[in-house]
Design a protein around this nucleic acid. Structure first.
Lengths: 180, 180
DNA sequence: ACCTGAACACCGTTCAAGT
DNA sequence: ACCTGAACACCGTTCAAGT
């Protein structure tokens, strides 16, 4: 007896938890189903496909970033997005592939557009944040193999410095792009 | 009778061709083996794993970018890398995952470092180029579904404008980062 | 509304054995 | 040096049927 019934929320919540524990390559529908004490086919009642599930996971990862920060400045918004990605293992990769497929909500790029006032520049900055964070997370994971220590979720001070310099640079090009 | 013997070059060359025809999700070891008229296990004599094969494919994609362009300026080098990624379907995604795992040669980031003179800024710019191009390619592929027309390999003028603005911005932050 | 059981059409990878 | 044959341990997804 499986004893518990599930819905979209509980399934995507455990999927996010499983992602953080085992990483994206080991996050399979079958393994997720096993942790839910359910047959793999049961997942397809809640989500049409694995990509749709991953889109829900992506939305969960970015749920903490405010859609509209009227008083927030660009560095705060950009750091907020990056920190949200860093909070879960392979977070950047999940959001990247979801965003690339046009799935998931537009929360993060929306927040960047609001504060930058330039859609193209905002999208470029989002692309940088995703690419940069993906590489940072991969470096962290490569380190944690052999380190045998707590796989910390913080980027190096060096990576942090480059990140903020890049954010400032994108802020600078925003008006230049608009004056086409 | 399989009639032909293969080596690393011929295998990775057909892998690149297959990638361009079917895309990364359909590029499987078994399908590649079938096109080579060979058993899947034969591929493992040439490459230790699929990732190692993809690293060779990644190197092929970037083979055209000059390691050192003493007379080349930043926009030329950056555009050269982006155009190399755009030349094959899912090129950016292959290079991104390869680079994230620390595999493949360091040709592209090396060229950026040489012209930028700042390793951290060069890595940040490479992360942007990969992220931005990945999103551009995905948009192109999404368009080509339903368009039923030639899946063209060129970015929109809009994406091109943002790209160059971002490149200029990264050039601007390079000295700022160095003066720590 | 939510899930089971069973199947379909695949994967990457290993390894002894062949030529 | 390069490949076959056979197996292992998996995948995502569909669909009739159950409760």
């Amino acid at each position: 007896m499986s004893s518990v019934r599930h819905d979209r929320e509980s399934v995507s919540a455990l999927a996010l938890d499983l992602l953080d524990r085992v990483g994206l390559p080991d996050l399979s529908m079958r393994r997720l189903a096993a942790e839910l004490d359910v047959q793999p086919s049961a997942l397809y009642w809640h989500f049409g496909s694995k990509q749709e599930l991953l889109a829900a996971v992506s939305d969960r990862i970015l749920a903490g970033v405010p859609e509209r920060g009227p008083e927030a400045d660009l560095p705060t918004v950009a750091s907020g997005i990056r920190d949200a990605l860093l909070a879960y293992r392979d977070g950047a990769e999940v959001v990247m592939s979801t965003h690339a497929l046009g799935l998931g909500d537009a929360r993060a790029p929306g927040a960047l557009r609001a504060v930058l006032g330039d859609d193209a520049a905002a999208d470029a900055l989002f692309a940088f944040i995703l690419g940069h964070t993906m590489l940072v997370q991969q470096r962290m994971h490569a380190q944690s193999v052999g380190a045998a220590e707590s796989p910390d979720h913080d980027p190096s001070p060096d990576a942090d410095r480059v990140f903020h310099a890049a954010v400032r640079a994108f802020a600078a090009i925003s008006p230049a792009v608009r004056s086409r």
